[in-house]
Design a protein around this nucleic acid. Sequence first.
DNA 1: CCGTTTGTTCGGTTCTACCCGAACAAGCGA
DNA 2: TCGCTTGTTCGGGTAGAACCGAACAAACGG
Lengths: 168, 168
Amino acid sequence: MTEDARAAARERVIESMEQSAEVYGLSRSAGRIYGVLYFAARPRSIPELVEETGYAKSTVSNVTRTLTRIGLIHRRSSEGGGRRVRFEAEPEIWFVLQDVFRQYVQRELQATLRDVQRAEDRLPNDGSRERERIRRLTETYEDLQEIVQLASSYSASELREALESYEP
Amino acid sequence: MTEDARAAARERVIESMEQSAEVYGLSRSAGRIYGVLYFAARPRSIPELVEETGYAKSTVSNVTRTLTRIGLIHRRSSEGGGRRVRFEAEPEIWFVLQDVFRQYVQRELQATLRDVQRAEDRLPNDGSRERERIRRLTETYEDLQEIVQLASSYSASELREALESYEP
DNA sequence: CCGTTTGTTCGGTTCTACCCGAACAAGCGA
DNA sequence: TCGCTTGTTCGGGTAGAACCGAACAAACGG
């Protein structure tokens, strides 16, 4: 009976994770698989995830790979010596966000900043509109890069504290 | 000849914007149309954008609508009295990011926080794993919401300053 | 009032991503 | 060794998005 309540609460949160997943550019299956692992008391193998999510084995295999690459879940391969692979969820969402900032957002910002700076260098410093626009872009992207760099080096509570205590 | 250089630089940056666009979940056409408007000295109508981008009229119509909704470009409908609609780019990218934070990220965070808190309220405060996991989620999302809230209320340079001057 | 220009909407095509089932590879135990 | 379980990879079906052309709506100029 209280188990029913727990299952219902779990299911609600997992459905919310499914929705969040597609907002963040992942598939719904990724949201559900992460959710199941997030609440699981012990790591799960692929057949267990197939059983608990209803997805096909191949889907679970592919999704677990991408989730592992992102850092949302971890492979615990060595356990009991079997070939069996076990996955568990990374419980600290902020760690995952830090990784995403560093691995993807930073990289993307850096790439565009590089392109824009290259364009700026090739353009003679006339007072043209192109020059002025490109100049503004580089300034903005330099700010953004620094912001993301610093933000990803703090914990969530530190970051919150930094913003709350700031007086312009 | 210097016009060639300017056109080349413009084209480079616009191509970079195309790439960024699809990273941010928009289409390549959206990146190009924003880019053309970003460098344009005066607002452009839809036929002009068709001419300068090579996209079909219907595509330009649809893309300009979504870009307007996001706030990346603005409609200047009243001009010379004609039915002609004119678009111009929002040059301050940070303003757009602030809007996105407030309109989409905040809303998304709020929705999940609401779902999670609702699940938490329905669950009796036993020491169960579900309870503990859901508790951790709400704490993280409360932090995230506050962070995004504050970050979107500062200018880019203020935000950078806030992070640079913070001492844990 | 009619032709022209502008903008939106609709149906169709193409392309991509998700997911599935089936085949395959790899190890374990009898 | 053979069967059984686990995990990956491959081909295909399906749904959704991007883009196009054509039809339609709305306003202005003659």
